[in-house]
Computed example of a mutant assay.
Amino acid sequence: MRTPILRRRFARWGTAVLMTAAPAATAVPAQALPSSPLPPTGQAALWSAGHVMTSGPVSTPQPIASVTKVMTAYQVLTDHPLRPGDQGPTITVLASEVTDYRAARLGGESVIPVAAGERISERTALEAMLLPSANDMARVLARWDAGSISGFVSRMNATAALLGMRNTHYADPAGVNTATVSTATDQLRLDQMAMANAVLAGVVGEKSATVPVAGTVHNSNPLLGTDGFVGTKTGWTSPAGSCLMFAAREADRHGGVHMVYGVLLGQPGGPSSAKVFMAARRMVDAARSGL
């Protein structure tokens, strides 16, 4: 049977924690072996065919940088659902948000240009936030959704609790605040939920999009369109290190399609380092070998 075979492979790889069925399942210790496809640094979690393997201190919350924006998008689409193909309501950018953009740009944050009175649809705003990882658009969406950023952050934390993300706390919608923390296993659960939303999955799977004022923006994830990768979100700050939430489609030996989900937190390398993407490829290749 396929499931026992995969489980034996996961056990042979060796992990800090092995769980069956879902990220919230009871953890069973497994011996860590040097042959594990998961990186030896930071935290990592991989879901494949109903099994999860992890490495690192996955019960210890740590900063997650712009991976935070997946929850921001998930929350916006929970509060203001869209159907595939819909643009949704129009959001008007406030003058104060232009001031925020300028300050964030001077501070070295990842932003896109905005203008006072700019009108942007909900879907396009999601593209502007998720593809180039624009912190200013994350704050625009938060204010529009809940009336205030603090109110939106409260909603994020309430949703995290509902999803069983017990080691997660959101302090901002962009991931700049180092008090925004989570674990690889918590974010793995969110990855699956986010990719189950057709609109969110569609946005994170886009290589580029056209938005007002900024023009064409490009996805910061170079894995898209290669080896079955279809999402999800990159992230980097100095305190968080290099982070990546990913999803990939894999054809199994029975002719079906199998989804693989993974999260990497606290990995070495700067914001443009290829190391985290190489680690994700190794993880997906390992999951593929177990099918």
Rank of each mutant, 00 (worst) to 15 (best):
S133W: 08
T178G: 00
L265F: 11
P81W: 05
I64W: 09
G164S: 10
L188Q: 05
A16W: 12
D227R: 11
G290T: 03
L264H: 06
V260M: 02
L224E: 10
S220P: 03
Y74I: 02
T237P: 12
T92K: 15
T3L: 00
P40Q: 04
A44P: 13
P34R: 11
P61G: 11
A22H: 15
R155K: 14
T180M: 01
A279D: 13
P239N: 05
A184G: 12
G164Q: 12
Y170N: 12
V52A: 04
A128E: 07
T124A: 13
V67E: 00
S154K: 13
T178E: 04
M278R: 06
G164E: 14
T3Q: 03
P61C: 05
L131R: 03
A247N: 00
A171K: 09
R249K: 13
P23E: 02
R7I: 09
P4Y: 02
A95F: 06
P61H: 04
D186H: 07
A161F: 01
R8A: 10
T159S: 10
V58P: 05
H258W: 12
T60Q: 09
P89F: 01
P212I: 00
H51A: 14
M137D: 07
G117S: 07
A49D: 11
M195E: 01
L244N: 00
M19R: 15
D79G: 14
L141A: 08
S150E: 10
A161C: 02
A198F: 02
I91G: 00
R281T: 13
G107N: 06
N219F: 03
L188T: 02
H258K: 11
T99R: 10
L291Y: 08
A115I: 02
S35C: 09
R139M: 08
A247D: 00
G14R: 03
V114H: 00
